[in-house]
Amino acid sequence: MSPVAALRLPLSDDLAAFVALLQRLGVPHRVSEESGEQVLWVPDEQFAQRVRELYAQYPGGLGGSELPPAAPRAASAGQLLAGLRSLPVTALVLLATFAVALASWFGDNLQLVSWLTFTDFRIQGDYAYFLPLADSLAAGQWWRPFSPMLVHFGVLHLAMNSLWFWELGRRIEGRQGSLMLLALTLLYSLVSNLAQYVFGGPAIFGGLSGVLYGLLGHCWLFQRLAPNAHFRLPPGVVGMMLIWLLVCLSGLIGALGFGQIANAAHVGGLLIGCVTGVLGGLLARRQR
C-alpha cells in the first residue's frame, strides 16, 4: 500500500498544532518537504479524506483538551495499532527494552545481563571479573557495542527512558523515516557505550539514556537550523535535560545514594546527536 498525500501546503504554514491533533487522535501520518511545499502523508485514501475534512474544520488544531465531535471513539484501539505500525522502529525498540527488562527482572538476572553488557563478565563471590572486549568480538558477539541500551535497572529507570524514547523517537521516525531512526539509534548507542567504556572502564552499565541524549541533541539543533513541526520540543525540555546532565556530572546523585550514573554515555550521546542534528539541519535547509 502506497502512502497518500492528504495535504500539500506552503512551508510558511505552521502545521505544529494540527500535527499534534492528529497525534492525539492516533492518525498515522508523516510530513515531508517537496518542491517548496510541506506534504502530509497518510497510509490510504480513507485516512486522507478524514484528514482533509479535519483540516477544513480545525486548521489550527485544538486549543482545549476535547477531541472533535466527529472523532470515532470506537476506532481508537485500531487507530493506536495503526499509529504503532507507522512507527515500527520506535515500537520495536520499546518492545525489546520491555522484553529484556522482564527477562532479566530489571538487571537482577546477571547471567542474562552478562550477554548484553558492553564487556562480558563472570561473578566469583562478591566480585565481577570482566573479559576483554576484543575476545568477545572475536567470538562473534558483535551485538555488545549496542545491546547495553536494552538493559535497565529498575522500573523507574525503564519507565523514564521509555517515555522519552517514545517522545523523541517518534518525532524523528515521523519526519526522517524508520531507517534513519534505526541508524541514529545504533550510532548513538555505539558512541555513548564506547564513551562510557573508555572513560569509566569495564563496568555493568546500561539503559537508553545515552541514546536519548543523542536524540535530544539531534532534534534540538535540527530544529534550530531547519524549523519544522516534528522537531519542535515543548518549551524548557532542552534546558531541563541539560540541567539534569550537569546535576549528574556533579556527582550529587551518587552521593545521595541513588546509584552511579553513566555520565560519559550521556555526554557522548549528546555530542554525537548534536553533530547529526547540525548535519541534518544544514542539509534540510539547503534542500529548502
Rank of each mutant, 00 (worst) to 15 (best):
V4P: 01
R8W: 06
D14R: 06
A16Y: 09
A16P: 01
V19C: 14
L22D: 00
Q23V: 10
R24S: 08
E34I: 07
G36W: 12
V39K: 02
E45G: 12
Q46W: 06
F47P: 01
Q49E: 15
Q49W: 04
R52E: 13
R52C: 10
R52T: 05
Y55F: 15
G64K: 12
L67Q: 08
P72E: 14
R73E: 14
L81P: 05
P88F: 06
L92E: 03
A96M: 13
F98I: 14
F98W: 13
A99I: 05
V100C: 04
G107E: 01
W115F: 13
F118P: 00
R122F: 07
Q124W: 07
G125L: 09
Y129D: 08
L131K: 10
D135L: 13
D135T: 15
L137N: 11
A138P: 06
G140V: 06
G140H: 04
W142S: 10
W143R: 07
W143F: 06
W143V: 05
F146C: 08
S147T: 15
M149S: 10
V151L: 15
V151N: 01
W164Q: 11
G169A: 06
R170A: 07
L181D: 00
A183E: 06
A183D: 03
S189I: 02
L190G: 04
N193C: 10
N193E: 10
N193V: 02
V198D: 05
P202E: 09
P202A: 05
G207F: 03
L208Q: 03
L212W: 01
L212Q: 01
G214S: 09
G217A: 07
H218A: 08
H218W: 07
R224T: 10
L233H: 10
P234C: 09
G236C: 11
G239S: 14
L246V: 15
L246N: 07
S250I: 15
L252Q: 14
G254W: 06
A255F: 09
A255V: 09
Q260H: 13
Q260E: 14
A264S: 13
H266Y: 11
L271Y: 05
G273R: 00
V278P: 02
G280Y: 00
G280N: 03
G280T: 03
Q287Y: 11
